[in-house]
Amino acid sequence: MSQTYLSLTVELPEEESEAAQDLLHEGNALGLEVRDREQPTMPGVRAPAPGEALIVAYFEDRETAEAAQASIAESFPHARHGLEEQPQQDWSEQWKSLIKSVQVGRLWVGPPWEADKAPQDKVRIVIEPKMAFGTGDHPTTSLCLAAVDTFMATRPGATVLDVGTGTGVLAIAAKKLGAGATVGTDNDPTSVELAQENCVDNGTPDIDVSGRELTQVSGTFDLVLANILANTLIELAPLIVAKAHGRLILAGVLAHQRQDVEDAYRKLGCTVLEGAQQGEWVRIDLDKR
């Protein structure tokens, strides 16, 4: 890494903060600093305006930072944003403090530095977050983990496809809870590499993780998981539905986006089941026979 890095500061309404954070994660931010009413700022640190959140995303190179800025500008046209060159600092320990372990059903999911805290009666999954999204502590991931836990409790041996696998946490959870053939796909090479490492580290090296397109994945699956953004879920709906012959679990959807996503999958023959919600994030459960 050079002696400087790029910081992208984004100011926008608080209700759009989590979606913007997801977009910045997908844009390969090295780390995020979020300032809002739930996180009081330190003395001398600029606080966000009332009703707004301030997000600072860090990038290693200008090309990646500018691409992320363009994505923010397109998705959040009213957001204020700016790029700055910053001297290199050791912010890694602060970043680590933002990643927490979670317990969902039979599962404990957390980063390596919290692994010793895992209860003995839980199925332990250790996730190295690095630059891929999905460590368990985000509402969308927690919602999906709960669905995986419930589904696998009655369907041992079920086949599983995890679309946009990120760190691989959902595929690993399914496998450790008794899934049969398990496949993960992601179009980000960094995520694929990290997910493969996480699979090996968690004793599930037989999970098939790759950057293949969905059209290149053979067969259909009992459980299809897709924790990605709403617009991508709608865009990929025909391909995702084509891989399912049972349950579909969709996440990465804000409450106001639910209807559009559900409609896209209803048109393809899916039955909408009762899902779940955590804060502004919803999980959509579907049946495809």
Rank of each mutant, 00 (worst) to 15 (best):
V160C: 11
T167L: 01
C144T: 02
T141I: 11
V183Y: 02
T182H: 11
G184C: 12
T141W: 08
T135R: 11
T167R: 01
L161A: 09
T182G: 13
L143T: 03
G184Y: 11
I172S: 04
G184A: 13
T135E: 12
A153C: 07
F151P: 05
D162R: 03
G136A: 05
G168H: 06
G180D: 14
T135L: 07
L161M: 12
G157V: 14
A174N: 09
L145D: 03
T135D: 11
L177Y: 03
T141F: 05
T141P: 07
G157A: 09
A153I: 04
G178H: 10
T154K: 14
G168N: 05
L161G: 11
G166T: 10
G164W: 10
V183T: 15
V183N: 02
T135C: 12
V183E: 02
A173R: 06
T154D: 15
T141M: 04
M152L: 15
P139S: 01
V160G: 05
P156N: 09
T150N: 09
G168I: 03
L170H: 14
D149V: 08
A158R: 12
L161C: 11
T167D: 00
T159H: 08
T141R: 05
V160I: 14
R155H: 15
C144G: 00
A174K: 14
A158Q: 05
K176L: 15
K176M: 14
V160K: 10
K175D: 02
A158Y: 13
